[in-house]
């Protein structure tokens, strides 16, 4: 972000206030290109609309909490926090202390993320690019997603989403991600209904 022309203070504020990596990178590129505010906000809306699906998906597990805690849970609902929690809740549907598990995972993800952003702002690119450690991010999501694919309908949802995401990768404002999510849900519903 700093390399993209955003000053350190504003970069850290963006990280804490928005707390959504993909939309932060997109905003950095758009700001550097002098895009109008409304384009930046619409882009953030499309990139982050998946969080609304996470919110609906995780709601049954957090519904018993007071409103204040649910608001905090919403703020912390990043990809990794959602993926860790929902993988656990899917494998152990009757587990006790789901809220505790969620906040433990989500706060750890938040702290790690903010520390990494601060380190990135202070140090710039630290680790050698030749190690290609950036590939660990999609691999971590593979590790969380693949164990969920135990039924045919789940596999269908994942395959349809993968195909649509690859096909739509070139679409503007990352529309491919939202389209792929809907394609996955539709495929899951169709295959799930047939049985």
């Amino acid at each position: 972000m700093v390399a993209g022309g955003i000053p350190p203070l504003e970069a850290m504020a963006l990280s804490v206030v928005v707390y959504a990596g993909a939309s932060m990178l997109a905003a950095t590129q758009l700001l550097a290109g002098g895009a109008p505010l409304v384009v930046i906000l619409v882009t953030a809306l499309f990139i982050n609309v998946r969080f609304m699906m996470y919110s609906a998906s995780i709601r049954p597990h957090l519904a018993a909490l007071p409103v204040r805690w649910r608001l905090a849970a919403g703020y912390l609902l990043a990809d990794n926090a959602y993926a860790l929690s929902v993988a656990r809740f899917t494998e152990h549907p009757e587990m006790k202390g789901k809220a505790g598990y969620y906040f433990g995972a989500a706060l750890t993800v938040w702290l790690t993320w903010q520390a990494a952003v601060a380190a990135g702002i202070a140090l710039g690119a630290g680790l050698p690019a030749a190690w290609r450690l950036e590939f660990a991010a999609p691999l971590a999501f593979i590790a969380l997603t693949v164990p969920l694919l135990r039924e045919r309908a789940m596999v269908a949802a994942a395959l349809a989403a993968a195909a649509a995401a690859v096909a739509g990768a070139g679409l503007p404002v990352r529309l491919g991600l939202a389209t792929a999510a809907l394609a996955g849900l539709a495929a899951g519903l169709l295959v799930g209904r047939r049985r």
């Binding site: 990809d79 999501f141 949802a157 690859v166 999510a181 996955g184 899951g188 519903l189």
Partner: peptide, 18 residues
């Protein structure tokens, strides 16, 4: 009925293009 498919669909859409 669609909600159980959210993790498989959305998370896969994040990593497949990568």
């Amino acid at each position: 009925r669609a909600l159980p498919f959210v993790p498989a669909a959305v998370l896969t859409a994040l990593w497949a293009p990568e």
